[in-house]
Simulated scan of single mutants.
Amino acid sequence: MRPGTLGLRVAMSRNAAAPKGVLLFLTGGPGQPGEPFAAKLSKRLKPLLAQYRLVLLDQRGTGATALDCPELQQQMGSSDLAAPTPQAVTDCGAKLGAHARFYSTADTVADLDRLRQALGVDRWTLDGVSYGTFTAERYALAHPRHVAKLVLDSVVPQTGYDPLDLDAMQAVPRVLGAACRAIGCGSDPAADLAAVVRRDHNGVALLDMLTTYEFVDPDYAEVITALHESANGSPGHLDGIIESVRQASAATAQELSQGLHAATLCADGRYPWGTSDTPLTGRQSALDAVGAGLTPAQTGPFDAATATGLGSLLSCLRWPREPVPPSPAPARRLPGSIPVLLLGGDRDLSTPLASLEQQRRLTPNARVVIVPGAAHSVQSWATSDVGRQAVFDFLMGG
């Protein structure tokens, strides 16, 4: 521990005596604040607000307290996958220095319980999206008696994310195939994608574009057309989509802090070289060895260079050595006393359904709802109301 204080912004509805208590909504990233989304979520969750008091938090290192690493921020924006330069990562790690170790999920979980105590509630309900699901799971494992219910939307399993993103790569043929059938595309988008990767060696850029484009159109209509054109020798349309998505991914540190993103993922993660306390010397050779052993069955229409070239992975490859924070045992299950809703979209490539299934195996008291045609962040982005209604029914039930 180090002396000092850190103020975190909190937004909450005024109904302090809500019959069902507090609903804490946890945003994603890591690096995304909560307080700026209060107005939007109040509208989205309006049917719940007669019964719940909605609370959102700017987790440490986000929003008003954002960790700002200008060059890393400029290079990655809101992306998990865009590859930063080694210098940008090194500069960010040097800027944060010894303070980088205080931004793990374990630190955020401790902050959440301080917030619970400050609100004067014994038990509350947590609704997490994307990385927010991981925070909610880790909170429930650390403080099970203080959790009434959990909503986990676009699930990151409690064991952590796969830094090689193999589940997403393997999900791409299924997702693009379903999208193709929905629009009657008449081509094989996965085969077209594989052909483009073999020719252009741009798997990272393509996977980054696909996981971002799902917010624009989970049917991928324009992307499927552009992939077919590119595979047949006309890459201009596809290159333009990749560039437009890259530009649209620009974000300030206050919108999504890449400094916090790196500090948290590198502290929490398990990588081909080990953990955050592994010496930097030898990390690259360990990553190279894993990459050399990857097979087409693991990488799908992509290649090994895609798996070993992703932005979050490369950030942590070069992140300064630091102690590993405490974490629960990998096989530990969520308490069966906590009802859990696992919510996902079948077009989600950011947190594919394989991640939800992994968490299901560790969740004894789980209700699972998969929304056809929906992608990432079902409650906020799905055009269908199926997922939102499932959340309302789950939270309003006994």
Rank of each mutant, 00 (worst) to 15 (best):
T5M: 12
S13G: 15
A18T: 10
G21P: 10
L23E: 05
L24N: 02
T27C: 08
P30I: 06
E35V: 15
E35M: 05
A38L: 10
A39M: 10
S42Q: 13
S42K: 06
K43D: 14
R44I: 15
L45G: 08
L45Q: 06
R53M: 05
L54H: 11
R60W: 10
R60K: 12
G61W: 10
G63N: 05
A66G: 11
L67Y: 03
L72G: 00
A83L: 13
P86A: 08
G97L: 02
G97H: 02
G97P: 03
A98R: 15
H99A: 14
A106Q: 09
D107P: 10
L112T: 01
T133F: 00
T135A: 12
A136G: 10
E137G: 11
E137Y: 03
L141V: 09
P144R: 07
D153Q: 06
V155Q: 00
P157V: 04
Q158N: 13
G160C: 11
Y161T: 13
V172P: 02
P173T: 07
G177S: 14
G177P: 06
A179K: 08
R181P: 08
G184H: 09
G184Y: 08
G186T: 10
D188G: 01
A190Q: 05
A190E: 07
L193G: 04
V197E: 01
D200L: 09
N202H: 09
A205I: 07
D208I: 01
L210H: 04
F215K: 06
F215W: 08
D217F: 06
D217H: 07
T225D: 14
L227R: 01
E229Q: 15
P235A: 09
P235S: 08
L238F: 09
I241Q: 12
S244E: 15
V245K: 11
V245N: 07
Q247D: 12
S249Y: 00
T252L: 12
T252M: 07
T252W: 03
Q254I: 11
Q254E: 15
Q258Y: 06
Q258K: 09
G259K: 01
A262I: 02
T264H: 01
C266M: 02
P272L: 10
P279T: 13
P279E: 13
R283M: 11
Q284T: 15
A286K: 14
A286Q: 14
L287C: 04
D288G: 00
A292Y: 02
G293A: 13
P296K: 06
Q298W: 06
P301R: 05
A304Q: 14
T308G: 00
S315W: 04
L317D: 02
W319E: 01
P320H: 05
E322N: 08
S327D: 08
A329R: 14
A329M: 11
A329S: 14
A329Y: 07
A331C: 06
L334R: 02
I338F: 02
I338M: 05
P339T: 00
L342Q: 00
R347W: 01
L353G: 12
S355R: 12
R360N: 04
P364I: 03
A366G: 07
I370G: 04
V371T: 03
G373W: 03
A374R: 01
H376Q: 05
S377I: 13
V378T: 05
S380T: 12
W381H: 14
A382K: 03
D385L: 09
V386W: 10
G387H: 00
Q389I: 08
V391I: 15
F394A: 01
L395S: 04
G398M: 12
G398E: 15
